[in-house]
């Protein structure tokens, strides 16, 4: 068993989940509160939402290719990042994190937007007339009332990152200890006809998925029972 790939994958998924939750909370709140406050702006907010959802339908290899070019030495952005960090982002763990964050963005934003949008608008009106701005409304109203959406978003992002292949391969390649995740390892094992090892790697990926989904369903059952 390649524990290095296992722990690298867990690290990548954990870092991506943490970053995405931090990014998705204000982004989702902005989308929902923007619709509430200015229905006339709903059109272009829907455009932003569609842009955020794009990685969901874009082939991962295409996204990986775009990022590879963008973060590589052929663009000013890529050169700027390399100068800033002292190394290029492509073919590095940090580059994988950037790719994973963009790739899994819709998996964090969609559940949170749905959760925040389910908060009844009279509550939002009440907070507004009591002087709460968007940040306070998010912290004191949307986040506590949409708690379950955080578990869904966190688990989906984590699993999506664990199973990521196309973006990782295009952007990170296959560098042991740096960019070789379980999905890449599995691909290598199958390519080398090492089916026994491939079965073990697949079992781990399957186990992670089942555990995470069980956590969501267990949590939702607990909630249903506590409300009954």
């Amino acid at each position: 068993m390649d524990w290095q790939a296992f722990f690298l994958t867990l690290r990548l998924a954990t870092v991506t989940t943490a970053i995405l939750l931090a990014v998705a909370i204000p982004l989702s709140a902005w989308l929902v509160l923007g619709r509430e406050r200015r229905p006339a702006a709903a059109g272009w907010l829907a455009g932003v939402e569609a842009l955020v959802t794009l990685p969901l339908v874009l082939p991962p290899t295409v996204l990986g290719f775009f990022l590879l070019v963008l973060l590589g030495p052929h663009t000013a952005f890529g050169r700027g990042i390399a100068a800033l960090l002292g190394h290029p982002l492509a073919f590095s763990f940090d580059g994988l994190v950037v790719g994973s964050v963009i790739y899994s963005l819709p998996f964090a934003v969609q559940p949170l937007v749905a959760g925040f949008a389910a908060v009844p608008s009279p509550l939002i009106d009440a907070a507004r007339i009591l002087g709460a701005g968007p940040a306070r409304m998010t912290a004191t109203l949307l986040v506590p009332l949409a708690r379950r959406s955080f578990l869904t978003a966190g688990v989906l992002v984590f699993l999506h990152t664990v199973g990521e292949f196309g973006v990782v391969l295009m952007l990170g390649g296959d560098i042991p200890g740096s960019t070789r995740t379980l999905s890449i390892l599995l691909y290598n094992q199958v390519e080398n006809f090492d089916y026994a090892a491939a079965e073990r790697t697949s079992a781990i990926l399957l186990g992670l998925s089942v555990l995470a989904l069980a956590a969501i369903y267990w949590h939702s059952r607990e909630r249903r029972e506590s409300h009954a």
């Binding site: 009279p122 007339i129 701005g133």
Partner: peptide, 18 residues
């Protein structure tokens, strides 16, 4: 609304449930 020095009690009480 929050800067109008206005208070409102709507038909739906809209108390924060948490």
């Amino acid at each position: 609304p929050g800067q109008r020095q206005t208070g409102m009690v709507a038909q739906q009480t809209a108390l924060f449930p948490h």
